[in-house]
Design a protein around this nucleic acid. Structure first.
Lengths: 235, 235
DNA sequence: TATCAATAGTGAATATGTTCACAGCGAAGC
DNA sequence: GCTTCGCTGTGAACATATTCACTATTGATA
């Protein structure tokens, strides 16, 4: 691969685990821990100790060989890694049930994400204030949004014209989208898309439940051994 | 590994992609498509054609070599695979903002998941009906829940006593939990836990944005080449 | 200061996941 | 019937991720 030699690599899977580590580290910090061993933290998060050490090392976080890892310093370092050491504005599109729930979701503010402004396609919502944040009509996106210096958008709107909306957001500076709408958006160049799909999660759980309850499989880490899948799929 | 010979294997990553395939297939079905080629479907979902064919084959789904894959039959087969070919009841714990938003989340019903009953720790919510579903006090869990034949629970409650709650759910037949609470639950034997962590998703996006905007990295699939991570973490 | 017990960091081995590339098939046209 | 085209299914190659296992080091203790 062309870029093999250009620098250290961090897997995005590692980044996702860093969020978990940070979450648990905050609890430890509140509980007064000053330092923690890899096997302790690993057990609390539910990963292997070796993997934890590798993840941390790949992010430039190193521990003391006798005292373990410094709790508070790690939290700061991980925040800087994420770019959340200072609060940033994000924009919410869609002030329906889910959007309003997200407005009152505490963890966003705690993690440095401030939903600063809302847009909705519904005329009756434009002009209203939800949980302290003003809602504008989506047609005002181009005039209002640039003032807020936003690079992340959260989509919790209806499924209409998502590709067009994505393109409009990109043109006013949005680089990443967290999409709660259960519909595939065509990946547009220069936009990083992250989908949250509740139903897909439930389907995964349902799949596991069904197989486990029929006694036809066992779980080996992330691999499922299937004994009777043909019975199920050829009926 | 001991179970190498016992059967076919399906990766849980494949299962997650099956949800995406199904989502797009439903759109195609509504649009009147009878069959679809792997490269067409793959492009719509945003995966490689080879991977799509492998995923389908590993789930026992095979196409016609000249006509491609049958759209409607695939939808049915995937539903059976998930065990969602008939509706199933699920239980919601927590009728706060997020819980109520989930109650009106259309895709759950469309995908065969019916939130049949709610529990909350708040006395003032017990006895009320939210979006047609009755809410009971959490203390009634053991007397009420068994009537509903539920194996999947959705947690959208406060972060108190989650481990205890998990154990109580397990004792009345719950096998899997979809956890929206931003706190690590200690994995209990016999329960499959799936965490939904909005903040972690935003942190991932923020990480990507920061690196891209500083021009210090490039994205190669799921791997990030980092040029300047040490500058960030040793300050 | 010397000794000891336990951990961090990491090369190597293993396990898993994705992509390539092609044999072989099936439908349609002539 | 024969040919042609383009697709599926899959072995093999490649890429990535995780785990093992060991060395060097640290701070504590006496």
């Amino acid at each position: 691969m062309a870029s093999d030699k250009v620098g250290k690599k961090i897997s995005l899977q590692t980044i996702e685990r860093m969020s978990l580590y940070r979450q648990v580290l905050e609890e430890l910090h509140r509980a007064g821990w000053k330092s923690v061993y890899s096997h302790q933290l690993a057990k609390m998060v539910g990963v292997g100790a070796a993997q934890l050490r590798r993840d941390l090392a790949s992010c430039g976080i190193f521990g003391n060989i006798a005292k373990g890892y410094p709790v508070y310093k790690m939290i700061l370092t991980i925040s800087r890694l994420f770019g959340t050491d200072y609060p940033q504005n994000v924009v919410l599109v869609g002030a329906g049930n889910l959007g309003q729930a997200l407005l009152s979701y505490r963890s966003f503010e705690e993690r440095g994400f401030h939903i600063a402004v809302i847009f909705d396609i519904d005329d009756s919502k434009a002009g209203k204030v939800f949980a302290g944040r003003r809602c504008y009509h989506i047609s005002e996106l181009e005039t209002i949004l640039p003032d807020f210096n936003v690079t992340i958008a959260i989509l919790a709107c209806g499924p209409q014209s998502l590709n067009e909306l994505t393109e409009r957001l990109r043109k006013v500076g949005v680089r990443s989208i967290l999409n709660f709408v259960p519909m595939q958006i065509q990946a547009s160049e220069g936009i990083h898309l992250e989908n949250v799909n509740f139903s897909a999660k439930l389907e995964k759980l349902s799949f596991i439940n069904r197989l486990l309850s029929q006694g036809v499989c066992s779980l080996w880490g992330s691999i499922v051994n299937v004994f009777a899948v043909y019975k199920l799929t050829t009926g």
